[in-house]
């Protein structure tokens, strides 16, 4: 069982908190403390809006240990509105409906269990943007 490893990245996974570079303004996710654009230190927290589009995707039929019970599931590179690419699962969508360029939004979902007795790991995933049709 791992606990501290998951706890450390809670803010990134629950709230999509990355960083913004104080020198060049680049938005960074996942946080890496050194700006990938200008190589200067960048430690200012920045909360991403959670909107983006599918850059690429794949559906997994042979899962790594811990994810067997979720197959088939779809993973993607999502291009966030603020710039960076993020790797995440897609949810609430059938594989045949996924397209490159499809607008998606961040939701918080269960990722997997750390074994039968271990903690539940929650994280960002992305789903097709839901538009309100009621009002």
């Amino acid at each position: 069982m791992e606990v501290s490893r998951f706890w450390r990245t809670t803010k990134q996974r629950y709230q999509l908190i990355g960083e913004v570079c104080g020198h060049c303004g680049t938005k960074i996710f996942p946080p890496r403390d050194v700006c990938p654009s200008c190589d200067l230190e960048a430690k200012t927290p920045f909360e991403f809006g959670g909107k983006g589009e599918v850059f690429s995707y794949s559906t997994i039929h042979q899962a790594p240990a811990g994810f067997e019970k979720y197959v088939p599931y779809t993973v993607a590179l999502v291009k966030l509105e603020e710039g960076p690419l993020i790797t995440a699962q897609l949810t609430d969508v059938d594989e045949c409906d996924v397209k490159i360029g499809m607008p998606v939004e961040m939701v918080t979902r269960a990722l997997r269990e750390d074994g039968e007795r271990g903690m539940l790991i929650y994280s960002y995933k992305f789903r097709p943007v839901m538009e309100s049709k009621s009002i």
Partner: peptide, 14 residues
């Protein structure tokens, strides 16, 4: 990347 790829269920094939 363990925390930002593998933790999200990505296999190397994917």
């Amino acid at each position: 990347d363990g925390d930002y790829e593998a933790l999200h269920g990505l296999s190397f094939v994917s």
